[in-house]
Simulated scan of single mutants.
Amino acid sequence: MAYWLMKSEPDVYGIDDLAAAPDGTDHWDGVRNYQVRNMMRDRMQPGDLAFFYHSNTKPPGIAGIMEIASVGYPDHTAFDPESKYYDPKSDPDNPRWYMVDVRFVRRLSRYLPLDELKANPALAEMPLVKKGNRLSVMPVTEEQWQAILAMEQAGD
């Protein structure tokens, strides 16, 4: 099993939206970064776990946990001229963009803001807390995953 962190703006699509989706499952679409596309297409597997991170909000932070529910498959929004994620260069016969399905697992017992994550020495090497990392999806090591879960429990 692998671990991930996946970012979304809560006013666009937040943890509550995923929890309210049928069966708590929805597709994670709109990724338009090749490095992230490759992770979703080539590395994510059903059963992997991901932190749901609320970005572009005050404060940004980890809101919950979700499970990867599918392998990567072509992102249909790239083919839809009405979608804000439309890419006229993406071809259904040779798709440029991929997505995965995710399933709601749970909200964290307490929201973990970015400043608190940055203050944890166990997370010093996590891409999220390093300057300049803007990827919307990133791998998380098992040690980092466990450190974040311990932070959640420490605040209870």
Rank of each mutant, 00 (worst) to 15 (best):
L117A: 13
Y98F: 15
L5I: 11
D42Q: 12
T25L: 06
P81Q: 14
Y111H: 15
Q144I: 12
L114K: 02
G64N: 06
V129N: 01
D75R: 00
M44I: 02
S8G: 10
M1H: 13
E143N: 12
W4F: 09
Q35K: 14
M126G: 01
V31C: 04
P59Y: 12
G155A: 14
P46F: 02
V36Q: 05
Y111I: 01
F79P: 02
R43C: 06
D17Q: 11
M6W: 00
G64E: 03
M6C: 08
Y98R: 08
Y34G: 04
P88N: 06
M40F: 01
I148L: 06
V102L: 09
K118V: 07
S90I: 03
G155H: 11
L18I: 15
Q153D: 14
P121Y: 09
A19K: 15
M6V: 15
Y73M: 11
P60C: 11
R43Y: 06
R43L: 12
W145H: 07
D48L: 05
R96D: 05
A19M: 12
P95F: 11
T57Y: 02
K131H: 11
P121W: 10
W4D: 02
R106N: 01
E9Y: 01
W4N: 06
D91G: 08
A21F: 07
S8D: 04
A122Y: 06
E116Y: 07
N94F: 07
T77Y: 05
P74S: 10
D101L: 06
K58I: 11
D23I: 04
V36M: 03
W28R: 04
A154P: 02
D29Y: 12
D80G: 02
S55H: 04
V140G: 04
R96I: 10
E82P: 00
D26C: 05
E142P: 00
Y86Q: 08
Y85T: 03
D115C: 01
R32L: 05
H54N: 08
R32I: 00
D48C: 10
G72W: 06
G155Q: 10
S70D: 04
N133E: 09
R43T: 08
D75G: 05
I68S: 03
N33W: 05
Q144F: 06
G30T: 01
V129P: 01
M99N: 03
A19G: 00
T141H: 09
E143R: 11
Y34D: 00
L112Q: 15
E143A: 15
P113A: 08
D11T: 13
T77M: 07
N33L: 02
A63C: 10
V12I: 15
A78G: 12
D23R: 13
D93R: 14
T25Q: 09
G14L: 11
A2R: 14
R43H: 11
D93F: 08
V31I: 14
Y85K: 00
A78F: 08
P92E: 15
V140P: 02
G132F: 03
E142A: 14
G64H: 01
T25N: 08
D16A: 14
G14E: 05
V105E: 00
M99E: 02
S109N: 11
R106A: 04
R103Y: 04
P139R: 13
I68A: 02
L108G: 01
Y34S: 02
L128T: 07
D11N: 14
E143C: 00
L114P: 04
H76L: 09
E67K: 15
P46L: 08
L117M: 11
D101E: 14
V71I: 13
N38D: 12
K118A: 12
K89H: 12
G14V: 04
